[in-house]
């Protein structure tokens, strides 16, 4: 991003566009990558509510893929996932492997 001088900034450095943080991708912070195994998913959406980075795409009440542009790889979803018959629907793998 090109840095702005004081003349270019709105008074008080007010940010005029709400939710503009979506333009800042935090996925590169990730050291571990969550993998979603659809067949073990019971669609409880606990991963969605507990995700601190709003990085799980949900459409019409159904869980979709991870949003790797923003997922920081904390692993909360994998730990809280109840899975199906004891089989976890989310596993963490080392990034780049």
């Amino acid at each position: 991003m090109k840095q702005k001088g004081w003349k270019d900034l709105p008074p008080g450095s007010v940010v005029l566009e709400g939710g503009s943080a979506v333009n800042f991708k935090t996925g590169s912070w990730r050291a571990y990558r969550p993998i979603w195994n659809k067949e073990n998913c019971i669609q409880c959406l606990l991963c969605w509510i507990y995700c601190p980075d709003m990085a799980i795409k949900v459409k019409d009440g159904k869980r979709g893929e991870f949003d790797y542009d923003y997922c920081k790889g904390c692993g909360i979803c994998a730990l809280e996932c109840p899975g199906k018959k004891g089989k976890n629907a989310i596993e963490m793998i080392e990034e780049g492997k």
């Binding site: 935090t26 601190p52 980075d53 009440g61 692993g75």
Partner: peptide, 24 residues
């Protein structure tokens, strides 16, 4: 959760809290 997930997030991704932070 199903109904809630249909609502718009008014706190978006792209924030820079630490990975795994409880506050967001």
């Amino acid at each position: 959760l199903k109904e809630l997930s249909k609502k718009e997030d008014r706190f978006t991704h792209g924030h820079r809290m630490c990975s795994g932070c409880g506050a967001p």
